[in-house]
């Protein structure tokens, strides 16, 4: 049976619902994000980047979420909650083999 990996939008919604998360940023590589922004400026169109990055690799799926947290939160607590929420969602949606769930706190407050 082939495991189904949830769409990036679904995972972004899961991350946004986690208590203490106040922003979800595009988690792609910086160069890709910058190129995308430049393209948007040149073409006058909004180029959207996936917020939660999903990569299928030989050893399993790799998920990366880049978040902003509230000033009153503790980074470690919010990161753990986001990790656990993603893990639970993956389990519910087909239980694909997971190589890594990365959560990056990129801004606070």
């Amino acid at each position: 049976m082939t495991a189904v990996v949830p769409a990036t939008d679904q995972l972004a919604a899961v991350v946004r619902r986690v208590s203490g998360v106040c922003a979800v940023y595009p988690a792609g590589p910086i160069v890709a994000t910058a190129v995308n922004a430049a393209l948007g400026a040149v073409t006058q169109r909004a180029h959207t980047m996936p917020t939660v990055l999903i990569e299928q690799r030989a050893d399993g799926v790799r998920i990366t979420a880049k978040i902003g947290i509230g000033a009153t939160e503790r980074s470690g607590d919010v990161c753990s909650r986001v990790h656990d929420a993603i893990a639970a969602h993956l389990l519910q949606s087909g239980n694909p083999p997971v190589a890594q769930i990365a959560v990056i706190v990129a801004s606070i407050g």
Partner: peptide, 16 residues
């Protein structure tokens, strides 16, 4: 940032 799961990679950026 620490987490017991071996597949977890939790970090905060230096910029933050």
């Amino acid at each position: 940032l620490a987490h017991p799961s071996p597949t977890a990679r939790l970090v905060i950026t230096e910029g933050a």
